[in-house]
Simulated scan of single mutants.
Amino acid sequence: MTDETQTVRLKDLRNLGKQGGVTARLDDGTDLFLKPDYAIKKANGYVDGRLREVEFHLSYKSIYNQIRTIKKAGQLVARKVRSPSGPELRLTGKGYKPNNHSF
């Protein structure tokens, strides 16, 4: 099988987060930064009555179905595609090579 047919798993998201410089865009257009154990969403919010930038830590499991694309250093690593079994997040074959994909 080629890398283009491989589906992104939670383990892949963690590995990408360890590499650093990886962002994910959700279906609603929100950008997230991937870290080893979670994704970070930055937003403006009020803290002690003052408007500040706050970070939300989101688990990969909670956002996985919402991810539209993943980029690393401006290069598209994965994108959501239609398949007979429904939408899937698939690797593009560029920017990331999974270590232990078993099918």
Rank of each mutant, 00 (worst) to 15 (best):
R25M: 10
R25S: 04
L26V: 05
L26R: 12
D28R: 13
D28S: 10
G29C: 08
G29K: 12
T30R: 15
T30E: 10
D31H: 11
F33V: 13
F33L: 12
F33A: 07
L34T: 04
L34M: 05
L34P: 04
K35H: 04
K35G: 00
P36R: 14
P36C: 04
P36N: 06
P36F: 09
P36L: 06
D37Y: 14
D37L: 13
D37H: 14
Y38W: 10
Y38E: 03
Y38I: 02
A39C: 10
A39D: 02
K41R: 15
K42L: 07
A43C: 08
A43G: 05
N44E: 11
N44H: 04
N44F: 00
G45W: 01
G45N: 09
G45Q: 09
G45D: 11
V47I: 14
V47N: 11
D48A: 15
D48S: 14
G49V: 08
G49E: 01
G49W: 03
R50D: 12
R50I: 05
R52H: 04
E53I: 06
E53A: 07
E53V: 11
E53T: 14
V54Q: 14
V54W: 00
V54I: 15
E55A: 15
E55R: 15
E55N: 15
E55C: 07
E55M: 12
F56W: 07
F56N: 12
L58H: 08
L58V: 04
S59V: 05
Y60G: 01
Y60D: 00
K61E: 15
K61H: 12
S62R: 06
S62M: 06
S62N: 08
Y64P: 00
Y64L: 11
N65I: 07
Q66W: 09
Q66D: 15
Q66K: 13
Q66M: 10
R68N: 08
R68H: 08
R68C: 02
R68Q: 11
R68F: 09
R68K: 14
T69W: 07
T69I: 14
T69K: 15
I70D: 00
K71T: 03
K71P: 00
K72W: 01
A73S: 13
A73F: 09
A73K: 14
A73Q: 11
G74Q: 04
G74W: 01
Q75G: 05
V77G: 03
A78T: 02
A78Q: 05
A78K: 11
A78G: 09
R79Y: 01
R82H: 10
R82K: 12
S83V: 05
P84V: 06
P84C: 04
P84Y: 01
S85P: 01
S85I: 10
G86V: 07
G86M: 09
L89P: 02
R90I: 03
L91R: 05
L91E: 01
T92K: 13
T92F: 02
T92H: 05
G93M: 04
K94S: 04
K94T: 09
K94Q: 09
G95M: 05
G95N: 03
Y96F: 12
Y96M: 08
K97F: 00
P98R: 13
P98H: 06
N99I: 09
N100H: 09
N100D: 11
N100K: 10
H101P: 07
H101Q: 11
H101K: 13
